[in-house]
Design a protein around this nucleic acid. Sequence first.
DNA 1: TAAACAACTTAATTTTATAAACCAAATTAT
DNA 2: ATAATTTGGTTTATAAAATTAAGTTGTTTA
Lengths: 96, 96
Amino acid sequence: MFKPLDPLLHSELRLAVVSLLISAEEAEFPYIKEQTGATAGNLSVQIDKLSAAGYIEVEKTFKGKKPCTLCRITPAGLKAFEEYVKALRSYLDVKQ
Amino acid sequence: MFKPLDPLLHSELRLAVVSLLISAEEAEFPYIKEQTGATAGNLSVQIDKLSAAGYIEVEKTFKGKKPCTLCRITPAGLKAFEEYVKALRSYLDVKQ
DNA sequence: TAAACAACTTAATTTTATAAACCAAATTAT
DNA sequence: ATAATTTGGTTTATAAAATTAAGTTGTTTA
């Protein structure tokens, strides 16, 4: 009846990050922070979790002298997102 | 960009309960328990939260001699669900 | 050169979800 | 009759998660 929802994606902030990265293909930490309205601490933690799960990849470079954290979606992340959306439909597609 | 998600509905079990009640218009505790696969304790807690928020109404009656907890969606619950789905779209509608 | 800022991370706190334990009444078995 | 089991839950305790607050490192600006 109801398909289980990937707990890693069933989180407002992590879902926003993944959604953003699917659209953007690549984004910097401050940009994600601005777009999601998250605090830096929260975002840092959630990015770590997505990265640990292999849903995104994080590259730490420099932009001139400033550190720059670049994030990208991975194929696994894209697949997980698609599965999540499919599972969600079992909750949302309700004949009223 | 990303609309906030009603935390009361952004929970796997509570979303399942509301989804079920929108389809069924009325359901008993054991039936909801079976359909969602939840434990009685967890379900009891989440039903309380939905009820406290006015998203569902809970009627305690008897079926013969056995207690029977009946749940129904309320107009507020239906509206909240619709808003939630609308908000979710801001995360899911992603042009790949 | 000291204060403020950028870009984070780590640690602490709060919130939330889940599970375990419990309760009361009814049914079934002995 | 009464002891054990089942039904239908609730309450309390624990585990996990999200969020915030504090701290770090290096940089720019006054």
